[in-house]
Amino acid sequence: MSQLPALIRVFAYLSLLAVGGGMAAFPEMEYLSVDVHHWLTKEQLIHLYSIGQMAPGPNMMMIVAIGDWAAGALGALAVLLAFFLPTALLTFAVGRGWKRLESWPWRDSIQAGLAPVSIGLLLAGCYTMAKGAIFGVETAAIAAGVLLILLQYKMNPALLVAASAVIGYLSFR
């Protein structure tokens, strides 16, 4: 119960960092939910994130499970609202003015300038996650295989994640 304010604070903050994609906020999510608040272990966070890749819809829905573990169903709801409401309001407000900003020369500068930073944040998130998920040749081969197949063929990533689940079951048991 007492975890609710912390959950709201942390996930509202994380949502503001998710520029370019949810993965951008991953290093900070690991630090805050594992090291600072001890809602779950690093391994559990990586597992939940990975399970989330098999679910439909926006790819950070795994935060619901963190909220549930820390503070029950109310925690799950609080996390959802904290993560989605502030950025939804911001997008709504900017969406109204965006067209009018077309003639504002800085608009393109901001858009072009933030792109490399958001890609850097996504890569930093990948690296943070890889440190916990890649250990040894087999896991490295799975990650590389998924990446190469996606670069080479147009294929639904969820299928590859499911195939990797089977490979994991068969080889790590």
């Binding site: 597992h47 998924v146 996606l150 590859l160 994640v161 990797s164 689940a165």
Partner: peptide, 25 residues
């Protein structure tokens, strides 16, 4: 065991997303 495979795949997928975005912008 299953989740080890899934987590490794998620790293590959996340890398792909970043590369795809990078190619475009």
């Amino acid at each position: 065991a299953t989740l080890k495979g899934v987590a490794a795949a998620a790293v590959g997928l996340a890398l792909f997303t970043a590369i795809q975005l990078g190619r475009r912008s």
